[in-house]
């Protein structure tokens, strides 16, 4: 009886259960209480609620200090860049891949002696565009609000092939560099690595994010990596460091990923 009543529960309806059943485990005690009724509601926190002044005042100095650090101009972006500007590769995506390599590869090299063959991060990880104008620390937080770190996966030839096929299949502007992929319809016409046809004859070092390394966006080839190396460097911090060192963001769309019908 109770089960059927629970099932019919919806907005504005009341549902009953037997009190004895609910409190069957309650031990004997002289002054015990039993729930007779439970009423649930929720309140949306929005501008209809006036702020508590003392709380706003307490936050204010933290906010002021934060804003002054976040909004200090670090670099300049000559034109708007958004992640859906162009179909298969974008200015902002190419920037993310280039910054990851520029900032992360020296750390990886110094720790392992190896170079990065390919950078691949995910389109969904770019959480905001960058309007033309000053670029700040806040820009980096908006584009990359998560604390994702760069990780280098060592992929066997079979997984490198899966990586290329993943990109060819999804035809999404996942930021990458190192590779050049040309499609004809759904077919892969050519794949080059550093300008030479890829041979799939050795292991490859692919820089990515810790999110993708654990199987995010169904990039399963990363979960099959032979090894993975953390470099303790957040992608957002790489952006901030790059912005500080470079006065203009001169990134462009190119033909690293193209498709003809």
């Amino acid at each position: 009886m109770k089960i059927s009543m629970t099932a019919t529960c919806r907005k504005g309806l009341m549902v009953f259960a037997f009190a004895e059943a609910l409190f069957i485990t309650t031990s004997c005690k002289t002054e015990s209480y039993t729930a007779e009724k439970l009423v649930a509601s929720q309140t949306r926190v929005d501008s209809t609620i006036a702020e508590v002044e003392s709380i706003s005042a307490y936050i204010a100095p933290y906010k002021k200090s934060l804003d002054s650090q976040l909004d200090m101009p670090l670099s300049f972006n000559p034109a708007d860049m958004y992640k859906n500007d162009t179909p298969l590769n974008t200015r902002i995506g190419n920037m993310m891949a280039a910054i990851s390599r520029a900032q992360g590869e020296p750390v990886f090299k110094s720790r392992t002696g190896n170079s990065v063959d390919v950078v691949l991060i995910n389109h969904g990880g770019i959480r905001a565009g960058i309007p033309a104008g000053n670029v700040t620390t806040r820009t980096a937080y908006e584009v990359m609000p998560f604390d994702n770190e760069m990780v280098i996966a060592e992929l066997a030839p079979a997984q490198m092939k899966e990586l290329v096929e993943y990109l060819a299949f999804h035809k999404r502007a996942h930021p990458f560099d190192g590779l050049e992929i040309h499609l004809k319809g759904d077919e892969i016409k050519s794949v080059t690595l550093d300008g030479k046809p890829i041979a799939y004859d050795r292991n490859y070092f692919v820089m990515t994010s810790d999110y993708l390394m654990t199987g995010g966006d169904n990039m399963d080839f990363f979960t099959k990596a032979i090894s993975s190396t953390r470099i303790d460097y957040k992608i957002r911090n790489a952006m901030i460091d790059y912005f500080k060192e470079n006065d203009t963001l001169g990134f462009d769309v190119d033909n690293r990923f193209t498709k003809e019908d």
Partner: peptide
């Protein structure tokens, strides 16, 4: 939670209003 002192009478129901 509307709490009743002691146990509910036999056959009495708990009301869930959601």
């Amino acid at each position: 939670f509307y709490m009743h002192k002691g146990k509910l009478a036999s056959g009495e129901n708990v009301v869930y209003e959601v």
